[in-house]
Design a protein around this nucleic acid. Structure first.
Lengths: 104, 104
DNA sequence: TTGACGCATGCCGATATAGGCATACGATGG
DNA sequence: CCATCGTATGCCTATATCGGCATGCGTCAA
């Protein structure tokens, strides 16, 4: 899951799919990638369950299934307390350094 | 950034560092990895800014800088609407399939 | 200065991943 | 049945990554 969204193009795909379902070719053209490239990324996303596909005539429509992103969101949320606190800590640390610099 | 947290061991390191600063060797032992392995992962985390190090005598203490996780949290948060909605959509879609199955 | 400790780095082999290309496969329309 | 369209897959190459191991480098103590 973390791995699937580590790829910028795959994140682009997911963002695009918030707008609805897309056939592979259109999606590839929209995002400026080749059709095989899009298919491969969609395969990865499908394997981790972030994307669902259904057949619509000749085409295959891909749609978003964002449930898998929830654990990621929650995991990062576990650091919410720290990305302020650590900022303060570092800030005061930087000030210490500056102070030490002046005193030399 | 996304790539840095795609590695399970690196996520373990980040979670451990919420408890405070750690010297490399202790951290490696705590997480059951080799010292070079820990150093390499810490290097990756340092390069993306998720971790800061400071020298403390012979040791080098690593500490958390979680600010970089905020964009990740916000990015996944952009799908919050969808991991309920898409669930409903899929659910009703599955029901349609069941319905179609019964009617055959 | 020497030795021990803490850590980083280099090298290696194995494995994975991405991009590009050609091609195979399934469905549709004539 | 045949041609065509939409899509998936296979092959290849380049590149990245991880793990393990040995080793280099800096720091401290005696």
């Amino acid at each position: 899951m973390f791995n699937a969204i580590a790829e910028p193009q795959r994140r682009d795909i997911l963002m695009l799919l918030r707008a609805g379902e897309w056939p592979v070719t259109d999606l590839a053209r929209e995002l400026g990638m080749t059709q095989p490239g899009a298919s491969k990324h969609l395969r990865v996303l499908r394997e981790v369950g972030l994307v669902r596909d259904r057949k619509a005539g000749k085409q295959r429509l891909y749609g978003l299934d964002a449930r898998g992103l929830r654990p990621v969101h929650e995991w990062t949320g576990g650091f919410e307390r720290y990305w302020n606190e650590s900022f303060d800590r570092l800030d005061s640390y930087v000030q210490q350094l500056k102070q030490a610099g002046r005193e030399e």
